[in-house]
């Protein structure tokens, strides 16, 4: 039972991550390989605040969103100057640098040893303790963020994002400030990803840099692509699919050392096949064509 709840909570965390990345990648068409960096910064901000200042959960989550949002500006601004795969490489660089800071700024982050002993959150008197409590919390957050994303995606602002993805010149010629929109969506996406990080930190009660690597970023982008870029429901489906399916490998009785590698190979094969035969994913409307 615990195991099942754990899987559901993981799916919830990946829904937060993939839906927020979908706004950046699927709506605005900016291929970003830096989402695990935002995820990680959110987790570290919350963990450090909780451990060092003993500050309450809600304050921490707000701080994490604000701080990660500022980082979002830093990643979004290059998108005004560089495009396509060059931009993706810039976000990749940002991801590596962030990981390296988490791993090496030992006096702040405790480096590879990680930060243990993050207390359980208390929200307005509700002690979030058991797996069930966490599942309820994550469900609430998913509900808020998914509705937020759906409203945003269907608003005139969302329409501008899609038109930026399709044709920046046309969008500018119609009087839209594309620079602002691109940076804004990065701030929003980064802020949402940090929420996932905060929850993760409180749920596991221990974080270390290995949870926020390039591989993690690639995993999140795989969810978005396979679920379908430009469709919020696709990301939800993709998150559930990509979290559950490898768990099946476990039941095939594979030794855990091999299972980890097989999982990776499996994700890689899935990503390649998806791009080859179904570039729009399950439900997507956008496939990075020329």
């Amino acid at each position: 039972m615990e195991y099942l709840l754990h899987i559901l909570i993981l799916i919830g965390i990946y829904i937060l991550l993939s839906v927020s990345l979908n706004l950046i990648v699927g709506y605005a068409g900016l291929l970003s390989i830096a989402h695990a960096a935002f995820y990680g910064v959110g987790a570290y901000v919350a963990a450090l605040l909780a451990l060092k200042l003993n500050s309450p959960f809600l304050a921490n989550i707000v701080c994490a969103i604000l701080l990660t949002g500022m980082l979002g500006v830093l990643v979004g601004v290059p998108s005004l100057r560089i495009k396509d795969d060059y931009f993706a490489i810039a976000t990749f660089a940002f991801q590596i640098i962030t990981f390296s800071i988490m791993n090496n700024w030992v006096s702040l982050t405790n480096g590879p040893m990680g930060l243990p002993g993050i207390p359980t959150p208390v929200i307005l008197g509700w002690q979030v303790n058991s797996h069930t409590d966490f599942l309820i919390l994550i469900f609430l957050l998913c509900f808020i963020i998914v509705s937020f994303s759906l409203i945003l995606g269907h608003s005139p602002f969302g329409r501008i994002l899609k038109s930026i993805r399709e044709d920046e010149i046309f969008t500018q010629a119609l009087g839209k400030n594309i620079a602002f929109c691109k940076v804004a969506i990065f701030v929003i996406g980064a802020g949402m990803a940090s929420v996932a990080g905060v929850i993760y930190a409180y749920y596991i009660s221990f974080i270390d840099p290995t949870s926020f690597t390039v591989m993690e970023s690639i995993f999140i982008i795989s969810i978005v692509i396979i679920g379908g870029a430009g469709n919020i429901w696709g990301s939800i489906l993709g998150a559930a699919f990509l979290v559950i399916l490898p768990e099946a490998l476990r039941f095939l009785g594979m030794p855990s050392a091999i299972a980890a590698n097989m999982r990776q190979i499996f994700y890689g094969v899935l990503l390649v096949l998806c791009m080859l035969y179904c570039p729009q994913g399950f439900l997507g409307e956008y496939s990075f064509e020329k």
Binding site: S163, E166, D167, Y286
Partner: peptide, 10 residues
């Protein structure tokens, strides 16, 4: 635009 610019997929 001379080479029509519209969002063809929408």
């Amino acid at each position: 635009f001379q080479q029509l610019r519209l969002i063809t997929r929408l």
